[in-house]
């Protein structure tokens, strides 16, 4: 099975702090990590490869330093990696990003599955996967937690509000992955050595036949007009007293505030 996993290097949003004076995002010293959902996507790909054979290639679109995210994936067990990096990709929204990633998948040819995390934790859009499927003209399965492959068709569990749908489909497909039942595997010693030695190829716009009208800022229909920090919640109130007293006081307050 030929599998491509799309990963994004993101700032660790759990490390993001708000400057209490200016009320703005403090970016300094925020570490870059592999998007957590993409690690689940990679884990899923590695399991399918380990069971059914084939190859897992990780790709990422980003600045040169995003190569660190790809090396981490190699250390976890991915076979190959490609970085898509070009100033022409700057300013891409999800439509332009998905176009660029899908051009890279086209160049590879013969890909059975493209697996993405359901969303990146910085943008939280969950749009790049389905948009890639459309650009590639293949089917999609989103919010997937398990995949079984019987040599011909795939059976997947797709998350719904109260459980999951069981869906049958055939490759080629784009699949987006939610949190799996198991944690993504850790880097191995062998993998880390390989990641360290490996020269990760960098593909530019010219390498993947990018139409400049469809990529980067020009290929992006959406425009960020304004960024602002949401209003912080006011400081809450700790209700004193033993359990009974505190519960009575709480209910009084909820009534006064007309919440009940």
């Amino acid at each position: 099975m030929e599998i491509v996993v799309c990963v994004k290097q993101v700032p660790d949003t759990t490390e993001v702090k708000i400057d209490p004076v200016t009320n703005t995002l403090v970016r300094e010293g925020v570490p870059s990590i592999v998007n957590p959902f993409d690690k689940y996507a990679l884990e899923m790909a590695l399991q399918l490869r380990d069971k059914h054979g084939g190859k897992v290639t990780v790709i990422s679109m980003g600045p040169p330093q995003a190569v660190a995210a790809l090396r981490e994936c190699i250390a976890m067990g991915a076979d190959e990696a490609v970085l898509l990096s070009d100033r022409a990709f700057a300013g891409s929204d999800t439509l332009a990003t998905s176009y660029t990633l899908s051009q890279a998948v086209r160049k590879m040819g013969n890909v059975d599955l493209v697996i993405c995390g359901k969303q990146a934790i910085d943008g939280d859009t969950a749009q790049v996967g389905p948009e890639m499927a459309e650009h590639l003209g293949i089917g999609q399965l989103t919010y997937v937690s398990t995949i079984e492959f019987d040599g011909e068709k795939l059976i997947a569990h797709r998350e719904q509000d109260e459980g999951y749908d069981v869906i049958e489909a055939k490759a080629p497909l784009v699949v987006t992955i939610i949190k799996l039942a198991m944690d993504p595997r850790l880097p191995t010693v062998k993998g880390t050595a390989k990641a360290y030695r490996m020269e990760v190829p960098v593909w530019t716009a010219a390498d993947i036949a990018i139409d400049p009208k469809l990529a980067g800022l020009e290929g992006s229909p959406t425009l960020v007009k304004r960024i602002f920090t949401p209003e912080r919640r006011g400081k809450g109130e700790i209700i004193q007293g033993d359990s009974k007293e505190a519960v009575d006081a709480l209910v009084d307050k909820l009534r006064q505030a007309k919440i009940l």
């Binding site: 999800t94 439509l95 969950a126 749009q127 790049v128 459309e134 999609q140 797709r158 509000d161 007009k225």
Partner: peptide
């Protein structure tokens, strides 16, 4: 929802138009 976020990007990509995800406020500029 899971279905809305499955269908929205598929359709917006086909129409080559912009889609903004998971909005919490809408207004007319």
């Amino acid at each position: 929802t899971n279905d809305g976020r499955d269908l929205g990007p598929r359709v917006s990509a086909r129409l080559k138009t912009g889609l903004t995800a998971d909005c919490t406020n809408l207004s007319i500029d």
